[in-house]
Amino acid sequence: DFYRCHTCNTTDRNAICVNCIKKCHQGHDVEFIRHDRFFCDCGAGT
């Protein structure tokens, strides 16, 4: 499962994972996106 962060203006080409929300995007306006054509390269392994 992935998310888009409207606060940081993520686009259709990138998304964030749950670990990104916990570490970098906590309290931001995020939108849940189940699956799409992207991956998270944060290195958290999710």
Rank of each mutant, 00 (worst) to 15 (best):
residue 1 D to E: 14
residue 1 D to V: 09
residue 1 D to Q: 05
residue 1 D to K: 12
residue 1 D to L: 02
residue 1 D to N: 15
residue 2 F to Q: 07
residue 2 F to C: 10
residue 2 F to K: 05
residue 2 F to S: 07
residue 2 F to I: 15
residue 2 F to N: 06
residue 3 Y to P: 04
residue 3 Y to C: 06
residue 3 Y to W: 05
residue 3 Y to A: 03
residue 3 Y to F: 15
residue 3 Y to K: 01
residue 3 Y to S: 05
residue 4 R to Y: 13
residue 4 R to T: 13
residue 4 R to Q: 06
residue 4 R to C: 13
residue 4 R to L: 11
residue 4 R to V: 11
residue 5 C to L: 00
residue 5 C to F: 02
residue 5 C to K: 05
residue 5 C to M: 01
residue 5 C to G: 03
residue 5 C to W: 00
residue 5 C to I: 00
residue 6 H to K: 05
residue 6 H to G: 09
residue 6 H to F: 11
residue 6 H to E: 01
residue 7 T to P: 00
residue 7 T to D: 03
residue 7 T to Y: 03
residue 7 T to Q: 06
residue 7 T to F: 03
residue 7 T to H: 00
residue 7 T to A: 03
residue 7 T to W: 00
residue 7 T to K: 05
residue 8 C to M: 00
residue 8 C to A: 00
residue 8 C to Q: 01
residue 8 C to E: 02
residue 8 C to V: 00
residue 8 C to R: 00
residue 8 C to T: 00
residue 9 N to S: 13
residue 9 N to Q: 13
residue 9 N to G: 12
residue 9 N to D: 10
residue 9 N to F: 12
residue 9 N to L: 10
residue 9 N to E: 11
residue 10 T to G: 14
residue 10 T to K: 07
residue 10 T to H: 11
residue 11 T to G: 14
residue 11 T to K: 10
residue 11 T to D: 14
residue 11 T to A: 07
residue 11 T to Q: 14
residue 11 T to E: 09
residue 11 T to S: 14
residue 11 T to N: 11
residue 12 D to K: 15
residue 12 D to G: 12
residue 12 D to T: 11
residue 12 D to I: 09
residue 12 D to W: 03
residue 12 D to V: 14
residue 12 D to F: 08
residue 13 R to W: 07
residue 13 R to V: 11
residue 13 R to M: 14
residue 13 R to I: 12
residue 13 R to P: 06
residue 13 R to F: 14
residue 14 N to F: 06
residue 14 N to C: 11
residue 14 N to R: 09
residue 14 N to W: 02
residue 14 N to D: 13
residue 15 A to I: 08
residue 15 A to V: 09
residue 15 A to Q: 10
residue 15 A to M: 14
residue 15 A to F: 06
residue 15 A to L: 11
residue 15 A to Y: 09
residue 15 A to S: 11
residue 15 A to W: 03
residue 16 I to S: 05
residue 16 I to Q: 04
residue 16 I to T: 05
residue 16 I to G: 03
residue 17 C to R: 01
residue 17 C to Y: 01
residue 18 V to D: 08
residue 18 V to W: 13
residue 18 V to I: 12
residue 19 N to I: 13
residue 19 N to T: 07
residue 19 N to R: 11
residue 19 N to V: 07
residue 19 N to A: 13
residue 19 N to C: 04
residue 19 N to D: 07
residue 20 C to V: 00
residue 20 C to L: 01
residue 20 C to A: 01
residue 20 C to Q: 05
residue 20 C to K: 05
residue 20 C to H: 01
residue 20 C to N: 02
residue 21 I to Q: 03
residue 21 I to S: 04
residue 21 I to N: 04
residue 21 I to L: 09
residue 21 I to T: 05
residue 21 I to P: 02
residue 21 I to V: 11
residue 21 I to M: 08
residue 21 I to A: 09
residue 22 K to R: 11
residue 22 K to Y: 06
residue 22 K to F: 13
residue 22 K to S: 14
residue 23 K to C: 06
residue 23 K to T: 11
residue 23 K to L: 10
residue 23 K to M: 03
residue 23 K to D: 13
residue 23 K to Y: 04
residue 23 K to Q: 09
residue 23 K to G: 06
residue 24 C to H: 11
residue 24 C to L: 14
residue 24 C to G: 09
residue 24 C to D: 14
residue 24 C to P: 00
residue 25 H to S: 02
residue 25 H to V: 01
residue 25 H to Q: 03
residue 25 H to R: 01
residue 25 H to W: 00
residue 25 H to P: 01
residue 25 H to G: 02
residue 26 Q to W: 06
residue 26 Q to L: 09
residue 26 Q to T: 09
residue 26 Q to C: 05
residue 26 Q to V: 14
residue 26 Q to M: 10
residue 27 G to V: 03
residue 27 G to T: 08
residue 28 H to M: 00
residue 28 H to Y: 00
residue 28 H to N: 01
residue 28 H to W: 00
residue 28 H to S: 01
residue 28 H to K: 02
residue 29 D to K: 13
residue 29 D to L: 04
residue 29 D to N: 10
residue 29 D to H: 12
residue 29 D to P: 03
residue 29 D to F: 05
residue 29 D to Q: 14
residue 30 V to N: 01
residue 30 V to L: 08
residue 30 V to H: 05
residue 30 V to W: 07
residue 30 V to C: 07
residue 31 E to W: 02
residue 31 E to M: 03
residue 31 E to R: 09
residue 31 E to K: 06
residue 31 E to C: 07
residue 31 E to I: 05
residue 31 E to F: 01
residue 31 E to G: 05
residue 31 E to N: 10
residue 32 F to I: 15
residue 32 F to A: 13
residue 32 F to P: 15
residue 32 F to T: 13
residue 32 F to N: 15
residue 33 I to T: 08
residue 33 I to N: 01
residue 33 I to K: 01
residue 33 I to F: 07
residue 33 I to G: 04
residue 33 I to D: 05
residue 33 I to A: 08
residue 33 I to V: 11
residue 34 R to C: 12
residue 34 R to P: 15
residue 34 R to G: 15
residue 34 R to K: 14
residue 35 H to A: 12
residue 35 H to L: 14
residue 35 H to F: 13
residue 35 H to T: 10
residue 35 H to I: 07
residue 35 H to P: 11
residue 36 D to Q: 13
residue 36 D to I: 04
residue 36 D to P: 06
residue 36 D to M: 08
residue 36 D to E: 10
residue 36 D to N: 14
residue 36 D to A: 13
residue 36 D to F: 06
residue 36 D to G: 12
residue 36 D to W: 06
residue 36 D to S: 10
residue 37 R to C: 11
residue 37 R to K: 15
residue 37 R to D: 11
residue 37 R to H: 06
residue 37 R to I: 10
residue 38 F to D: 09
residue 38 F to V: 13
residue 38 F to H: 13
residue 38 F to W: 13
residue 38 F to K: 13
residue 39 F to S: 13
residue 39 F to C: 13
residue 39 F to M: 11
residue 39 F to G: 14
residue 39 F to P: 13
residue 39 F to K: 13
residue 39 F to D: 13
residue 39 F to V: 15
residue 39 F to E: 15
residue 39 F to N: 14
residue 40 C to H: 04
residue 40 C to S: 05
residue 40 C to T: 03
residue 40 C to G: 02
residue 40 C to V: 01
residue 40 C to P: 04
residue 41 D to M: 05
residue 41 D to I: 08
residue 41 D to R: 09
residue 41 D to L: 12
residue 41 D to E: 08
residue 42 C to T: 04
residue 42 C to Q: 03
residue 42 C to M: 02
residue 42 C to L: 03
residue 42 C to A: 04
residue 42 C to F: 01
residue 42 C to W: 00
residue 43 G to I: 06
residue 43 G to Q: 05
residue 43 G to T: 13
residue 43 G to F: 07
residue 43 G to A: 08
residue 43 G to L: 09
residue 43 G to C: 08
residue 44 A to F: 11
residue 44 A to Y: 10
residue 44 A to I: 15
residue 44 A to S: 12
residue 44 A to N: 06
residue 44 A to D: 15
residue 44 A to C: 05
residue 44 A to W: 14
residue 44 A to T: 08
residue 44 A to H: 14
residue 44 A to R: 13
residue 45 G to F: 08
residue 45 G to P: 12
residue 45 G to Q: 07
residue 45 G to V: 09
residue 45 G to E: 03
residue 45 G to K: 08
residue 45 G to M: 07
residue 45 G to R: 08
residue 46 T to R: 15
residue 46 T to H: 07
residue 46 T to Y: 09
